[in-house]
């Protein structure tokens, strides 16, 4: 069996077991991990596969969250249509912004995505319709009574988030393995060659940007439901920075790495903050160690471990 399948199986079993045996707090943590995993996987498609390291991914997360809130409380839509609106809003923003930003590379791309993230934050912060810095409530979770789920129950909501994380993985994994995904990897490895072969590079980058935004928007919509509340905090640049750290720690360009990263970072954050008030320091130290000693993050470390095993036998 491949490392990928084993890792996937372990993650599913771990998620299932923690869901079955944890209490309220544990299920809330699981929900948080699932949401961060979707968010991180979406960024991985951009940063890991296509080489577009964005520092403004929170914009799409935030627009998803606010889209959820606004669709519910301003348009009076139900939970599932509101989620569709949230995802569509994130994709629409990505399409508009993307036309401009996909032309930029490297540090310029990082700076423009950061700037766009800040613009969206500033706009939401000032917007009266969206509650300004007070944020917005009135969010409804979808009604899944037909399949026996009561999402207002934390256990059912955790399950909902986990299933969506799993489906997001399947979808993004399919994209990554498709000809389209292969071309994204090719663009990452040599943009000039891809172009010389006839690939309209900007259009592919735009496609990746919109797909990534869709899943970031989905994560945002879930985050809004989790808290029943959204605020401009969802859109701050540190949210973009944190998710990028999760992707790097987990291992770029693997999709499963960011899932591991989401779990490890979330758990560490909670465990360390219980033990010490200096938890951010130790979390930072952990990041530094991973980046220094684990090329391609935790998933990369697993891959090397497996290779060494095989070489030994």
């Amino acid at each position: 069996m491949t490392l990928r399948l084993v890792t996937l199986a372990v993650l599913i079993v771990a998620a299932g077991a923690s869901w079955a045996f944890s209490g309220f707090f544990g299920k809330d943590l699981l929900t948080e991990i699932a949401i961060l995993a979707i968010f991180a996987m979406s960024l991985d498609l951009l940063a890991g596969y296509t080489g577009m390291v964005s520092l403004g991914h929170a914009a799409f997360f935030g627009v998803g969250a606010y889209g959820m809130a606004a669709a519910g409380s301003l348009l009076g839509l139900g939970g599932l249509p509101a989620m569709a609106v949230a995802v569509a809003a994130a994709m629409a923003l990505a399409l508009i912004v993307g036309v401009f930003v996909v032309r930029l590379k490297g540090v310029f791309f990082i700076m423009i995505t950061l700037a766009v993230g800040q613009m969206v934050h500033a706009w939401v912060f000032r917007s009266e319709a969206l509650g300004g810095d007070d944020g917005m409530g009135g969010i409804i979770r979808p009604d899944l009574g037909t399949i026996g789920l009561v999402l207002d129950d934390p256990a059912d909501f955790a399950l909902f988030a986990l299933v969506l994380a799993f489906l997001s993985f399947l979808a993004l994994d399919l994209v990554a393995r498709s000809p389209f995904g292969r071309l994204l990897t090719a663009i990452h490895q040599s943009e000039s060659r891809a172009r010389a072969l006839g690939c309209p590079v900007e259009r592919y980058k735009l496609g990746a940007y919109v797909i990534a935004a869709a899943f970031a928007g989905l994560a945002g919509a879930l985050a809004a439901q989790r808290d029943y509340f959204v605020s401009p905090e969802f859109l701050t640049w540190t949210v973009s920075g944190e998710v990028l750290i999760v992707v790097i720690v987990g291992g770029m360009g693997s999709l499963l790495g960011p899932v591991i990263g989401a779990a490890v970072v979330t758990l560490l954050k909670h465990q360390l903050s219980d033990v010490t008030t200096y938890w951010m320091f130790f979390l930072g130290l952990f990041f530094v160690l991973v980046v220094m000693f684990a090329d391609r993050g935790l998933y990369g470390a697993l891959r090397r471990l497996k290779r060494r095993r095989e070489a030994a036998t």
Partner: peptide, 23 residues
């Protein structure tokens, strides 16, 4: 092989297919 397959995928115009594996 992957290099050449990728080049052929671009030339053959299948690059925009995202719902199906490369295989």
């Amino acid at each position: 092989a992957e290099n050449l397959e990728t080049a052929l995928a671009i030339a053959g115009g299948v690059g925009r297919v995202f719902w199906r594996g490369f295989g």
